[in-house]
């Protein structure tokens, strides 16, 4: 290779580099969408219900009718008379479950279409759909517990921490 050819090649190489540099200039795209933190589906429920609100919602969810004012005041007094509210609500829900008027799906319905039962239960008590993980856990639980009844599932949802918040 003579000198002229060498200089030609070097020149071409430098021009190529220069051209590629222009061509690789990074573009900045702005989509005008803010960054979002991913939070649990129930994370917006961070306000505790008052005792009256909780009893009212609980009664409606279990009996599918509104609680009367006198019954409401009585239930409120009963709850206030016991300091540990978890214990008090457990007793209250246990009492309601013994009432016979609680509107419950049948066990046959639960077993026939467990996914519909789980989705309905989440909607009734927690006002939302279950996540896929929650749905699978509940379906597995129902399937693996032949003695599980809708009443026990309702009890658990009714006395869960999420049900106490909005």
């Amino acid at each position: 290779m003579n000198m002229l050819t060498f200089y030609k090649r070097v020149g071409l190489f430098l021009m190529l580099i220069l051209f590629m540099g222009w061509g690789c200039k990074e573009e900045s795209y702005v989509y005008e969408v803010n960054d979002v933190d991913i939070s649990p589906i129930n994370s917006t429920k961070n306000k505790p219900k008052t005792e009256a609100q909780y009893i009212s919602v609980l009664y409606t969810n279990l009996f599918q009718e509104a609680i009367g004012p006198n019954r409401m005041l009585e239930a409120l007094a009963a709850i206030q008379s016991i300091g540990d509210k978890r214990v008090a609500y457990d007793i209250l829900v246990s009492k309601y479950m013994a009432d016979g008027q609680v509107v419950l799906p049948s066990e046959e319905d639960m077993r026939a279409d467990p996914e519909a039962f789980v989705r309905d239960t989440y909607r009734r008590f927690l006002i939302r759909q279950p996540t896929e993980a929650e749905l699978q856990w509940m379906l597995n639980y129902i399937e693996s517990r032949p003695n599980l009844t809708p009443e026990l599932v309702y009890f658990s949802f009714a006395t869960s921490n999420e049900h106490f918040h909005y």
């Binding site: 994370s43 429920k45 961070n46 639980y141 026990l152 006395t159 869960s160 999420e162």
Partner: peptide, 17 residues
């Protein structure tokens, strides 16, 4: 079941008192 439900709702202090 309640443990499962409560473990999916773990905000500090947000529990039945």
């Amino acid at each position: 079941m309640r443990h499962f439900l409560n473990s999916n709702y773990v905000e500090e202090g947000l529990e039945i008192p």
